[in-house]
Each structure stands twice: as structure tokens, then as C-alpha cells.
Computed example of a mutant assay.
Amino acid sequence: MAVQLEVRGEFIQLDQVLKVTGLCHSGGFAHSVIEAGEVSVDGVTEKRKRAKLRPGQRVGYAGETIELVAAGGLD
């Protein structure tokens, strides 16, 4: 089951997703795991630290999946 993260505004950066969800303890650590190719977006490895992600996309890291939803979209 995916964890849902509410996106306030048009987008959120990939490094921020990892930090906000607690999967990475710092922005620097998030940058290192992204650069190492350990993070996927919609099933494809993503190496852009500040990739702009929008509601509807899914991030995978360390066996976890984060589903981005629009603000107000959580039940």
C-alpha cells in the first residue's frame, strides 16, 4: 500500500518528498540516494534531485511507495 503525500501548490521537488516523508533524514542524504540511482518516479529511475513532481505521480525508495495527491485530495 502506498503512503499518500498531499502536494500543496503545483509541484514538490523530489528531494523534498524524501525528506518530508521521513525516508531521508536530511536533504543531503536525499541528494546522495537520488544520485546513486536508488529512487524511482513512476517506475523509472530518477537522478534529478530537484525534479518537479505533481499529483498523480508515485515515488519509490527503500521498498516504500509515496503517492502524490492534490491538496484536499486525501480522504
Score class of each variant (00 low, 15 high):
53 L>I: 10
61 Y>T: 02
27 G>I: 04
55 P>I: 05
57 Q>G: 10
65 T>E: 15
21 T>M: 07
26 S>L: 12
33 V>D: 02
17 V>S: 12
15 D>Q: 03
1 M>R: 03
50 R>M: 15
20 V>C: 00
72 G>N: 10
2 A>P: 09
34 I>K: 02
39 V>T: 01
6 E>Q: 10
11 F>A: 14
18 L>P: 15
5 L>M: 15
73 G>Q: 14
67 E>T: 07
51 A>V: 05
65 T>R: 10
27 G>L: 02
32 S>F: 01
13 Q>S: 06
19 K>V: 14
64 E>I: 05
58 R>D: 11
4 Q>W: 12
43 G>S: 07
59 V>S: 04
19 K>Q: 14
4 Q>D: 11
68 L>V: 12
57 Q>Y: 07
63 G>C: 09
14 L>Q: 12
1 M>K: 11
55 P>N: 02
34 I>A: 09
2 A>S: 07
2 A>F: 10
35 E>L: 03
25 H>D: 13
41 V>Q: 05
29 F>N: 01
32 S>T: 03
50 R>K: 09
47 K>H: 11
17 V>R: 04
52 K>Y: 01
73 G>A: 15
53 L>R: 06
29 F>Q: 09
32 S>N: 08
11 F>P: 06
23 L>G: 13
67 E>S: 06
22 G>W: 05
58 R>K: 10
18 L>K: 09
57 Q>S: 10
23 L>K: 03
58 R>W: 03
54 R>T: 13
32 S>K: 07
32 S>C: 00
69 V>A: 11
46 E>L: 00
9 G>S: 04
45 T>D: 13
56 G>Y: 14
10 E>M: 02
12 I>M: 13
41 V>I: 08
67 E>N: 05
64 E>K: 08
56 G>V: 06
63 G>M: 05
56 G>S: 06
37 G>K: 04
17 V>I: 13
74 L>C: 11
38 E>Q: 00
35 E>T: 00
9 G>H: 07
34 I>Y: 05
20 V>R: 14
43 G>F: 10
17 V>N: 09
48 R>Q: 08
15 D>Y: 05
20 V>P: 02
26 S>Q: 05
74 L>N: 07
8 R>Q: 06
37 G>W: 06
10 E>F: 08
66 I>V: 13
13 Q>G: 08
4 Q>Y: 13
73 G>L: 08
12 I>E: 03
27 G>F: 04
21 T>Q: 10
71 A>P: 00
15 D>L: 03
24 C>E: 13
1 M>Y: 12
25 H>N: 09
61 Y>S: 05
71 A>S: 15
69 V>D: 04
18 L>E: 10
57 Q>A: 11
32 S>A: 09
13 Q>I: 08
21 T>D: 06
38 E>C: 00
5 L>N: 01
16 Q>I: 11
8 R>L: 13
54 R>I: 12
65 T>M: 14
18 L>D: 15
8 R>N: 11
12 I>K: 01
18 L>Y: 15
40 S>C: 08
41 V>T: 10
3 V>L: 15
61 Y>A: 07
28 G>R: 02
2 A>D: 04
13 Q>M: 14
65 T>A: 07
34 I>E: 03
1 M>L: 06
